[in-house]
């Protein structure tokens, strides 16, 4: 059985890698120049965080794998990100809704993780917390503009919220890995973030004049066993193509 901290770091790292990758797909295709720049900033923050987290994961594992080996040479079944991160970008409403829900989640988790007894992890969490604060702010402002903007934006953001909401049911589940880390003072209880997250989400939805979504969240913690959507396979095929085609090559 692998070291729980290794699994935990993969979860954090994979999520940021996959979400950062999705956001980077917008580069050159955003709705306005200023947003191309903003999204690229957020993507860079996330990929940077992934680099640190996966790098630490490789050290903890102790088998000589670095961040690139973990990012570019694992199959979809070995990835530990939450499925919401891997869904296609959709329209800008879905992109912002998904970014908001996941950043708000990250914000609440990182808040607790800053006090991890693992010094390096605490340091990464502190840096990521500052960056994530901005991600929440930026995406929240868009939700408000979409909800309290035009007829069309309201319709689109409503649809996006219903779709994304289905995936949020599994954000706060704890398993043996989480319990073990909590016992060691390395990471907070995932469920502890739920009330703060809900409060944050409700506050933004209210500012956006949007009703809370009615979609019933899906259950299932399978993503921690590598049960993903079909989207992740395609994402990784594209992302990993060069590393796979030229094994051992340096770039």
């Amino acid at each position: 059985m692998s070291e729980p901290l290794f699994d935990y770091l993969l979860r954090l790292g994979d999520e940021r890698l996959v979400l950062g990758h999705r956001l980077s797909e917008w580069c050159g295709h955003g709705p306005i120049l200023e947003e191309d720049i903003a999204l690229a900033n957020i993507a860079l923050d996330l990929i940077g965080q992934a680099n640190l987290l996966l790098g630490l994961a490789g050290e903890v594992e102790g088998k000589g794998r670095d961040a690139d080996a973990l990012a570019y040479l694992r199959d979809a079944r070995e990835f530990r990100n939450h499925p919401l991160a891997e869904l296609p970008n959709g329209d800008y409403a879905f992109t912002m809704v998904r970014l908001f829900l996941l950043s708000a989640h990250a914000y609440c988790v990182l808040d607790g993780l800053r006090s991890s007894s693992h010094q390096e992890l605490a340091g990464i969490a502190a840096k990521a917390f500052k960056e994530t604060t901005y991600h929440v702010r930026h995406s929240a402002e868009w939700l408000v503009r979409f909800g309290d903007g035009s007829e069309e934006s309201r319709r689109r953001v409503g649809t996006a919220l219903e779709e994304a909401w289905r995936w949020t049911g599994t954000l706060f589940l704890a398993d043996v890995v989480d319990q073990e880390l909590q016992a060691r003072g390395l990471a907070p209880d995932p469920a502890a973030a739920a009330p703060a997250w809900r409060a944050l989400v409700d506050a933004v939805l209210e500012r956006a004049t949007l009703p809370p979504p009615s979609a019933a969240p899906l259950s299932g913690r399978g993503y921690r066993r590598g049960d993903h959507t079909e989207h992740l396979g395609h994402l990784l095929a594209e992302m990993q193509v060069l590393a796979r085609t030229h094994p051992g090559a340096e770039w």
Binding site: S24, E25, C27, L33, L44, G48, A71, E238, W251
Partner: peptide, 22 residues
């Protein structure tokens, strides 16, 4: 960007393209 062969190149290219937008 989506096919950059490692994380450093991925970030470097994304930062470069972002600069161009700027």
């Amino acid at each position: 960007i989506t096919r950059a062969p490692n994380l450093r190149r991925k970030m470097g290219l994304l930062a470069k393209v972002q600069d161009e937008a700027g």
